[in-house]
Design a protein around this nucleic acid. Structure first.
Length: 274
DNA sequence: TCCCAGGTAGATC
DNA sequence: GATCTACATGGG
């Protein structure tokens, strides 16, 4: 089905900005995305977005929330741009970014894998564990459920190149987390709950909350964000994550999550501070 | 060969 | 509390 009239959306920026890992480019602004046990082929031609082989029901129930299509990003971009010229530049650099609303268990495991790792390698490891422990869809495999991961052996996960993170994946799976219940927690309580998992610290929990729990008030600070924040706001001086976090919350208010993603993408592509 | 990557746990002070 | 280091793996 074709969808028209969606502003502030660029499929390439949405997928390539580092928030998700299960997609393949198959043409110009054309991708296969694996999410929520679906293989979605999606293509964007200027103002028209085509969702191949998609029912009206799947579009409304899965893809509208997934791509955050009901939110007015024009307003978010305007507010952030008015706050300071650096955000204005980052927003103009990739104005088609949207914060996805992904599956919480997949996002949690994915960002456990992301620690001390590179994005191409993260994608490869996630593909490996999906093919080994997930379920066959059409031409791809679903991301394994926590139950499927509970049946994984440490050695099997290591074979997927998870490295030292294998034991963290098993700990997360064996916590038997009730994700529907977690959605009801406050952001502070949710963060503490996620950090009870071995291998989940402030960064992984913030990413999980931003990209799957719709908690837009967090500010995940990784090496790129640390570099770009130091470069633009701290005179390129070494600054603690705590100070960066406080500064971001004070400057960007309740839009820190959006600001973070514009800045992260901008910093990574422009290689700011390296 | 050495250094680093969308960090964190454990040790040490 | 804040700081230091090991950790699997692969690419520059």
């Amino acid at each position: 089905m074709d969808v028209n009239g969606i502003k502030d959306f660029d499929i390439e920026e949405v997928l390539e900005c580092g928030q998700c890992f299960r997609f393949e480019k198959i043409g110009h602004k054309k991708y296969i995305i694996i999410a929520f046990n679906k293989e979605l082929v999606i293509e964007q031609n200027s103002g028209t977005i085509t969702f191949f082989d998609t029912t009206e029901e799947d579009f409304e129930k899965i893809w509208v929330p997934y791509f955050d299509l009901n939110r007015d990003y024009g307003e978010i971009k305007a507010i952030l741009s008015s706050k300071d010229p650096i955000l204005k530049e980052a927003v103009e650099f990739a104005g088609g970014i949207r914060i996805l609303s992904q599956d919480p268990s997949e996002t949690l495991i994915s960002f456990i894998i992301s620690q001390n790792n590179r994005i191409p390698m993260i994608k490869k490891v996630i593909k490996n564990i999906s093919e080994k422990y997930g379920s066959k869809l059409n031409s791809h495999y679903s991301f394994p459920t926590m139950t499927q991961l509970q049946n994984a052996a440490l050695g099997g996960l290591m074979e997927c190149k998870t490295g030292f993170r294998a034991k963290y994946i098993l700990d997360a799976a064996n916590k038997n987390l009730d994700f529907e219940g977690l959605k009801k927690l406050s952001t502070v309580d949710l963060k503490h709950k996620l950090m009870e998992i071995s291998g989940v610290g402030p960064k992984v929990s913030d990413c999980t909350m931003l990209f799957s729990f719709n908690r837009y008030e967090v500010f995940p600070t990784d090496v790129w964000i640390k570099r770009v924040m130091q470069y633009f706001y701290f005179d390129n001086k070494e600054t603690s994550i705590k100070d960066i976090d406080e500064f971001a919350k004070q400057k960007f208010g309740n839009l820190t999550g959006f600001a973070q993603q514009y800045l992260f993408h901008f910093a990574r592509i422009k290689k700011i501070g390296v």
